[in-house]
Simulated assay, not measured.
Amino acid sequence: MPRTVLFLSIMLFVSGGFIFAQKGTGKLYRIDRYESIYLPLGKISFADKLIEYKVGTPPPIQKYRDSIQCLHEPNYKNYQTPNFVSLGCGGSLTVEFTDNGFMNLPGDDLYLFEVGPSKEPAKVEISENGMDWIYAGKIAGGKSSIDLIKEGIDTETVFYFLRITDLKDLCKSKSAGADLDAIGAINSVIKLTINADVLFDVANYDLKETAKQGLDSLAESIRKVDKATILVEGHTDSDGDENSNMLLSENRCISVKNRLIEIFGEDSLYEFEIKPYGESKPCVPNDSEENKQQNRRVEITVLPSRDYYESISRE
């Protein structure tokens, strides 16, 4: 489901598992006394909205039922300090990522910061829209990472919702059920979708003057990541010749890429790629003028740098 801010539809995701320095963004989070996990986009990588909390039976004691303790960065200190939430036996928790999302990218995609003296197994499901759910795997004991590729989940969908359900293995403690401190997306990108009519005149690939100002503003979102690969994808509606539409989308990608290079400077740590699609990947059917306008778009995806993915592949 598109998320719109003015003429921008903004989606953020995450990728990683290997420690790779991106100044100002990536961050290490301690798992236990000896281990930490690296999240390339740092503090924005966490679930930040509670959708639903269903306490299981038997429930945990009252002080461990503050459900918002699972949001944002982890802050667990010890079992006696109630800065985590317990699900109760068979209980569940549903959260939303509002300033980022997550995808099936190389390496582990999610990490659930499960805490407490016992680490109970739980089922994890994910959703693009909060209504249609897909099984994503389970956490068990000391293993709290999820790799979506193992469940055959596609590599193009952006997910914003996660639901975790306790599997009723340990139900007799004061904090019955799985205990959660935070839910983080390891695998991360920033994706911005721009209506092509805002950037270009009809059948033209020269940027409007007003579009240049818009891209200047958009660049501030990109600067949240200090080193990245910036992928520019171009799409058209189905009007006109297929080959002409492919050429038009390619030239529009080049125009946007060149403008971003102007903004960031030749010496920036950003690498650029373009992918023109023409009319081949509509987001809605080309059966009305309104839909055609939605299909005329430029998508900018900010991914961790090539060096980062090469580091993952060497693990």
Rank of each mutant, 00 (worst) to 15 (best):
D239M: 11
F20N: 15
Y34I: 07
E125A: 04
G265I: 06
K191D: 10
K208A: 03
Y308H: 15
P58K: 06
P74N: 11
T301V: 14
K191N: 12
S175R: 09
N245Q: 13
L110K: 01
D66C: 04
A47Q: 06
K174I: 07
N129T: 07
K212P: 04
V198A: 14
N129C: 08
Y309N: 13
S127T: 07
H72M: 13
I31R: 12
T81H: 10
D166F: 03
K172W: 12
N291Y: 06
E233P: 01
N286T: 04
Y64W: 15
I146F: 02
T301H: 03
I153V: 15
S311W: 02
P121A: 11
E96Q: 15
Q80W: 10
D99R: 14
V302N: 01
D147T: 08
V85N: 03
Q22Y: 07
C253S: 10
Y309R: 10
Y38G: 04
R296V: 02
L6R: 14
E262R: 10
M246L: 15
K174P: 07
D169H: 13
N245P: 04
L87E: 00
S15R: 06
L93H: 00
A136K: 03
A182L: 03
L248G: 03
P74K: 04
I37A: 10
D216W: 02
A140Y: 05
I61C: 10
I222T: 05
A228F: 03
E151M: 11
S45K: 05
V85P: 01
L207N: 07
D132P: 02
I44A: 09
F97Q: 00
L247A: 12
A203K: 15
L28T: 14
S45N: 10
D181K: 00
I146C: 02
Y79M: 10
T98D: 06
Y79N: 13
V298C: 08
G101F: 01
G265E: 07
Y135T: 11
I263T: 09
Q293K: 15
V158R: 06
E52Y: 01
E73L: 09
E290R: 13
P304L: 04
K49N: 13
A196H: 02
E242G: 02
Q293V: 08
A228G: 06
D267Q: 13
T210Y: 00
R65M: 01
T236H: 05
L28P: 01
S175Q: 12
T57P: 00
C70R: 00
L110N: 02
V198C: 09
D181A: 06
L192V: 15
I183V: 15
R33P: 01
N129Q: 08
N195T: 12
L303T: 02
W133T: 07
Y111L: 03
R297G: 00
E250Q: 15
R252H: 05
K27D: 07
